[in-house]
Nucleic acid binder design. Structure first.
Lengths: 228, 228
DNA sequence: TTACTTATATCCAAAACAGTAATATCTATT
DNA sequence: AATAGATATTACTGTTTTGGATATAAGTAA
């Protein structure tokens, strides 16, 4: 059977938390025709002989120099006019990466920027997200990537309710405060410390290591690691 | 840019609850080459000039004669060898349809069958699902459709925790028992009646109509409708 | 009218939750 | 060495939520 096939792309939202704020890695588009915004999620086309997962990992490696990132499929976007030049269907992935790893990627590639992600809505319905970076200010997002980023935030918030989310965003050893900071950044609101501690520890997903936080100005917190 | 594009399909899991059991609409494949199983989720190829949502609704209309079904995107499956004949990437949708509507579809198309869906696993990880119909017994599922059905069940169960799921599976008027039966079918376990009532009513997603159930052998229950 | 079945409302104990306060521990300063 | 300051950790308490059981109401059928 032969018929006009649409073009398929895999785009990735590399998410991290920095300074208690949610951030996403964005790429400056140096296309000759700047259609619909200068900044976009890193991505590449899906070829016939490469699996989706491999394509996504290839994006991570080629665009950000990252190996073995935590990936999770988000959704597939296929509106007819999402790219005004040609029909492109985008399979979007969510990548959770510790800030330390993202920093290395940015330093190596000047087209990349780490933008803070904020959302306009407050309820449950979702909506668009906005990206802002210290160097470039508000970033104009290409295609439907503002909608996608909105869905990213929605997914992250939804997962926090039932799932031990956020550990992928942390290094091997971390304090309870680090975890709380991540949850607060994703939810966009402060959480009560004792309640958060209890819920986290009761799930038995992290375990104390006996080691203490280094270079603390005051009493250092205990370091935890994932139970595996 | 030109490169070898993969083929894209939209497949739909039409889900309904019948006799307190979870069911899915499956289609008998009459291909000359019966590769990997006789039964599959209804689907069609995605064309360059049709949106994903429209393609999915077209599947509903062409294969099952259903208009305006409730659709929700599930996930996109793109393993290299999921179809041994050629590379096909499947964007899978979940459709929730009242049993009355499904029945009409089956009567009109002999290639269709409504199969009970059961899962082997019990925990959280997920896994494959099995399809059984009274006429054909255990159905051999094509491609990775057993995995997809497993993800369908997982998604449905996950949504029950936080969302008013199941109302799409019911007619306009329904009893609280109908809703509970749907939840029990999805979760695969019995629920306590008073607790279920409270949680459901406290969410204010359904409202009493003052009307009574018809043709009940004993005391008829009150009929409810969605609040909108 | 009575037995029977199911729907609906009421009640109580157990568990989960949130918020506040108290204590412990470490650093920096004097 | 002692103390103040800041933060981590634990302990306590009242409130809310949950689950299960029970009681009451409402309808059908004999």
């Amino acid at each position: 059977m032969t018929y006009p096939k649409p073009t398929l792309a895999a785009d990735i939202a590399f998410i991290t938390v920095h300074n208690a704020k949610l951030h996403c890695l964005l790429m400056n588009r140096d296309d000759a025709t700047q259609v619909g915004g200068d900044w976009a999620l890193p991505g590449k086309f899906v070829h016939e002989d490469v699996s989706l997962e491999d394509t996504a990992q290839a994006v991570a490696l080629e665009k950000a120099g990252l190996r073995d990132v935590y990936l999770e499929q988000l959704a597939t976007y296929g509106a007819l006019d999402r790219d005004p030049r040609q029909r492109v269907i985008s399979i979007t992935y969510l990548a959770l990466v510790p800030h330390s790893r993202i920093q290395a990627a940015i330093a190596a590639n000047p087209a990349l920027a780490l933008a803070e992600v904020t959302t306009r809505w407050s309820g449950e319905t979702g909506g668009q997200a906005q990206a802002t970076s210290p160097e470039h200010g508000a970033l104009a997002l290409a295609f439907d990537h503002a909608d996608i980023l909105g869905d990213v935030v929605k997914r992250l918030r939804g997962k926090l309710d039932y799932s031990p989310v956020g550990l992928e965003l942390l290094p091997k050893l971390f304090t309870l405060r680090d975890v709380q900071e991540i949850h607060e950044a994703i939810l966009g609101q402060k959480l009560a410390k004792p309640a958060f501690r209890r819920k986290l520890l009761d799930r038995n997903l992290i375990k104390p290591t006996g080691q203490k936080e280094q270079a603390s100005a005051f009493r250092p917190a205990e370091l935890y690691s994932k139970t595996k």
